[in-house]
Simulated assay, not measured.
Amino acid sequence: MNRVEYMTRLASMLQDIPVEERQEAMKYYNDYFDEAGEENEEKVAAELDSPEKVAAVIKAEIYGRNNTGETKAPVYPAEKEEKDTNNWWKILLIIVGGLFVLSIAGPIVLGVALTVLAVVFSGFIALIAFVIAAGCLAIVGIALFIGGLTQIAVALPEAFTLIGSGMILFAVGMVGVVLLVQLCFVAFPKMFRWIVKICKKPFHRKAVS
């Protein structure tokens, strides 16, 4: 008897049981044949009980009730229980392995993330400090320019020196403020997008795979 004949006879014997129970039984024995391999189908069919006997056992277990009225679960070959046990062991090993990897990689990832954040924050603070310094330089230039204007009537050479120095400092300060502010609005968004892109790479690879 081959697989097709065995499963056809078993299906015909199980027509009078609930659909869910029939599908579960058919799925189990189909999986049983799949695991054995196509070349071993006839051998498996010979080793198993006849479809009639298997159907009788399944029906007895489905319709057999204990004193409390609870339905007993269908009895299948012992391999099903072993398979379920193996699945639980695999899940447990995956969980333990994940916790182990997390315990090692977690602190490293956290340390790298904190380092990156510290660098970004330090750069931001430094940039703000430079902007303030450039602004102060421009203010000093304005003060020198005004001071030079007040000295024109008293000491003309010194007045021109103050005015010239003030204009230079003001120009340098304003250029510095403009450049630094522009850098702040251009560099940091790019840096932020770069960090986000790096953080997304592992998840993107996982989704693609």
Rank of each mutant, 00 (worst) to 15 (best):
L14G: 06
A25S: 12
Y28V: 03
I17P: 12
M13H: 09
E35G: 03
E24Y: 15
Q23M: 14
S12M: 09
A25V: 10
A11Q: 06
Y29A: 11
L14P: 09
E24T: 15
N30R: 10
E39N: 05
M13D: 05
D16W: 11
A36L: 13
E35P: 00
D34Q: 08
D34L: 07
L14Y: 05
Y32P: 03
R22S: 01
N40W: 09
N40S: 09
Y32K: 02
Y32C: 07
D16I: 12
D31C: 06
K43N: 06
M26L: 15
V44D: 09
K27C: 11
E39D: 12
V44K: 12
D31T: 12
S12W: 05
L14I: 08
D31I: 07
A25F: 10
A11R: 05
Q15F: 04
A11W: 00
E20F: 01
M13N: 07
M26S: 05
R22P: 02
Q15N: 12
E21C: 08
E39F: 06
E41Y: 15
F33K: 02
E21M: 13
E21Q: 14
K43M: 08
E39T: 05
N40I: 02
D34V: 02
E38C: 01
A11Y: 01
E41C: 12
A11L: 04
E41N: 14
Y32S: 08
E35M: 10
E38T: 01
D16F: 11
D31R: 10
A25M: 11
E42S: 14
K27Y: 13
K43S: 05
E21F: 11
D34A: 06
Q15D: 11
D34I: 03
K27L: 14
F33Y: 09
N40C: 06
E20G: 03
P18E: 12
S12F: 06
D34R: 03
E41G: 03
K43F: 05
E38M: 03
E35I: 06
E42W: 10
L14C: 07
Q23R: 14
E39L: 08
E21L: 12
A25E: 00
E41P: 11
Q23G: 08
Y29H: 07
M26I: 13
N40A: 09
D16A: 14
N40D: 12
G37A: 00
K27D: 13
N30C: 13
A11C: 02
E42F: 09
Y32A: 04
M13L: 03
K43R: 09
A36G: 15
N30S: 15
M13S: 05
Y28I: 04
E39H: 06
E24F: 15
A36V: 08
V44E: 12
Y28M: 04
A36W: 14
R22C: 00
K43A: 07
S12C: 06
